[in-house]
Design a protein around this nucleic acid. Structure first.
Length: 130
RNA sequence: GAUCACUUGGAUCCUGUCGCUCUGUCACAAUGGUGGCAGAGAGGAAAGUCCGGACAACACAGAGUACCGUACCAUUUGAAAAAGUGGGGCCCUGCGAAGGGAACAGAAAGUGUCACAGAAAAUAAACCGCCCUGGUGGUUUCCACUGGGGUAAGGGUGAAAUCGUGUGGUAAGAGCGCACGCCUUUUGUUGGUAACAGCAGAUGGAGACAAACCUUGCGGGUUGAAAUGCCAUGUACAUCCCGGCUUCCUUUGCGGAAUCGGAGUUACUCGUUCCUGUGAUCAGGCUUGCCUGGUCCGUCGGGAGGGGUGGGCAGAAUAGAUAAAUGAUGGGAGACCUGAGUAAUCAGGUCAACAGAAUCCGGCUUAUGAGAGAUGAUCCAAU
RNA sequence: GGGUCGUUAGUUCAGUUGGUUUAGAAUGCAUGCUUGACAGGCAUGAGGUCACUGGUUCGAAUCCAGUAUGUCCCA
């Protein structure tokens, strides 16, 4: 049974790790989502930590950014089982930052479609690298 | 009745499933986790940060200056800012009744500015004109030119021209005098709690601008949760530069004093408070135990450039985090829209706009959909 | 969270303190001359709601208030 929880410890919070992702991470794109990911020392129990962001340059209102982040988080929560647990060793974890690329506020369905596509590509690419 | 503008109030409710943040509790685990149960979980503006507080840190005998803010009266609410009600004067519209407006101390303390035009723009002033008068010429009761003087009635300029009308007066004129009126200051008096208004007397006739400087009254200690306190981690009590280490008394005790020096008083001054004020060595001087100068050490104050950390807790809240919690998807009620229908009703759709707490309160300002109410404008219909 | 400063031609800036005079400079743009042609040079010209709204004033880019938007600073 897939895990549908998305708790505080499963979310990306440490400023240093986020900085490392943006400086040395690899990218996967599937409109309207762009994933940037890298491998780091394990912080929580889960094998993957994710963060969500919407650029301020495209959405000036805090309300709009919050809504987009909530919808992306919901899409990730329902589909996080696409990244299997044994993909990394026990002392490592995958850290992912989800960036919203579109200029419009899209409905939940299209965001979820993009999220599924992006997560599949991420798992696929990681297999090949290993 | 429709549309538009403006304004008031208004900001949907119940519930299922999968999830989120926090709190309490129980069980399993064992520093952190998992699960069950119960409870709480965004706004009228949470926004702008324009005000006022709470709270915190630093400072604090006191006085003055500067700086900043503020400015009709009464009353109610309030901790204060501010808001409400009523009133006064001012400005605008209107014949008036009345309606509307604002940021309402002082231009008669002083300084400054007032382009262009105009003679003159502020201790007034003589361009045309008016009047008196000297001279010259002519076609000689008059006219022309020219010199001196008087004059602010009239003209024209301007945003604005130094009280208005009448009358006396005069060569012509003039608040120069007088009458009425307007206004300033001031005294008395009447009404009013007061701002203020009326009346009487005296005094005078003064341009505008204080959202120019400024003056007067009143108020303000400074800085703000990135404040502040604690724990942990880490590093270099290192380096360089500038300045100070005075005088007097003395019972000789590293004692006392100062109008010397330094620090604080967080913009400045006075005042007040507090603090420090050595030793070694070399050279010179003489009054022979003191003075002057240099170097080194020490100490006090100020600064420069480096090195390191950049985690957590409190501040912090019966909403409450720190890349920051409310989302997704159903059902029902209610409201509205569209279509069908004479109607009951049926089908479909939407639940919007502005917008997301970050220490907390009270105001102000700005943004704002549907439906409802008030006011105004236009159009249509009827009378 | 708190504070400071700005907004003027396509661009970068003067002018604002201390109100009235033509809103000016550089660069860019257009046209012409110069060249066989280009670059460069020379000459001429166009281009401005002085961010927006309201107020004070005879008069506002300038003073005052509000709004919008941007820059910088503070641990």
């Amino acid at each position: 049974m897939a895990n549908f929880n998305l708790r505080k410890s499963d979310r990306l919070k440490r400023r240093k790790v986020i900085g490392a992702i943006f400086s040395s991470g690899q990218g996967v794109r599937a409109f309207p989502i762009q994933l940037i990911w890298t491998i780091a020392e394990r912080q929580g129990l889960n094998h993957i930590q994710a963060g969500f962001t919407a650029p301020r340059k495209k959405f000036k209102r805090a309300v709009d950014r919050n809504l987009i982040k909530r919808r992306m988080r919901e899409a990730y929560r329902l589909n996080q089982g696409l990244i299997p647990e044994g993909i990394v060793s026990d002392d490592k974890q995958i850290v992912v930052m989800c960036i919203y690329m579109s200029r419009d506020i899209l409905a939940f369905d299209s965001i979820q479609k993009g999220m599924i596509k992006a997560l599949k590509r991420l798992a696929d690419k990681h297999d090949r690298i290993d």
